[in-house]
Every structure is written in structure tokens, then in C-alpha cells.
């Protein structure tokens, strides 16, 4: 199917939701309110949006090495994303994936930032290794 992007399932599972897409990453400290899931980083395209139940599609981690702990805390508070997609893994996102345990697809064959927009409904299938865009 043409609206599928193939990749590698990094954390197994299948989940779906509305996409939050940014070629910029998000900062962890002063970036994520882990009790509500809201993005609070000033000037970020996601500022004021909640990642709860969303499919988070971002380029990687930045800022403090504490990046993963904000996702871990959000998971325990029930406000974590439903799934995460990273075009390429890094050590911050890798640990965030390991502590959150939600389905994660990475090593994508296409640039997701050119074909998925915030608000698109997407399915993340990490068992088979793809991201699919539904209208």
C-alpha cells in the first residue's frame, strides 16, 4: 500500500491514534508536563498540545539526559503517547522507548516529515514494522 512507510519494529505491539509530527525534537526538562502529558516547551509547534494517546513522530531527543524519565513518568500517570515513531534511533529516544514500552517503529524507509502531518490518523504496527496513514 502506498500510504505505508516500512521500518523496523523496535518495541513490539500495534497502536493507533492521531499523529503529532515535528521534524524538531522536544526537550524533556521544561518541555513535557509529565502529569498531564502537555508539551510546555516555549515556541515548539506542539506547545499546549497533549501527547496522551497520540502517535508521536519526532526526529530524536535533545537536552538533558533525563529525557526518558519524563516519558516514563507520563506512562505511569497514564498520559504517555499510544505509540512513537523515530526515523532514526538515538540513545535518548532508545531509553524512552525501553521505559515506556509503547509500540515504536524506527529506521524508516521514507522521511515521515514529508508525508505525515499533525492530525493525520495513523497506525503503528511494530510487530510487522510499518506506519500506515489513514485519512
Amino acid at each position: 500500500m502506498s500510504n505505508r512507510i516500512k521500518g523496523r519494529g523496535a518495541v513490539k505491539g500495534i497502536a493507533e491514534g492521531y499523529a503529532m509530527v515535528s521534524g524538531e525534537t522536544i526537550q524533556g526538562w521544561s518541555g513535557i508536563d509529565e502529569s498531564t502529558g502537555k508539551i510546555v516547551e516555549i515556541g515548539h509547534p506542539f506547545e499546549g498540545m497533549s501527547m496522551k494517546g497520540a502517535v508521536l513522530i519526532i526526529s530524536g531527543g535533545k537536552g538533558s539526559n533525563g529525557w526518558s524519565c519524563h516519558f516514563h513518568a507520563a506512562k505511569l500517570k497514564g498520559v504517555a503517547p499510544a505509540a512513537m515513531v523515530f526515523p532514526k534511533m538515538d540513545s535518548r529516544t532508545g531509553v524512552a522507548a525501553a521505559v515506556t514500552g509503547v509500540p515504536v517503529v524506527t529506521d524508516l524507509e521514507l522521511d515521515p516529515f514529508s508525508c505525515i502531518k499533525t492530525g493525520d490518523y495513523v497506525i503503528v504496527n511494530a510487530d510487522e514494522g510499518y506506519v500506515e496513514i489513514r485519512e
Partner: peptide
């Protein structure tokens, strides 16, 4: 720049992925 949790895992078992 592993996350905080990975630091504790590595400290306890003495290993980290040979990556990056």
C-alpha cells in the same frame, strides 16, 4: 546520552549496548 534509567541498569550489570 542514555536516559537516567539506563545509567542504573548499566551500573547494576556493568554493561551498555556497544552502539553510538
Amino acid at each position: 546520552a542514555d536516559g537516567l534509567e539506563a545509567g542504573f541498569w548499566a551500573a547494576a550489570c556493568g554493561r551498555i549496548p556497544k552502539w553510538g
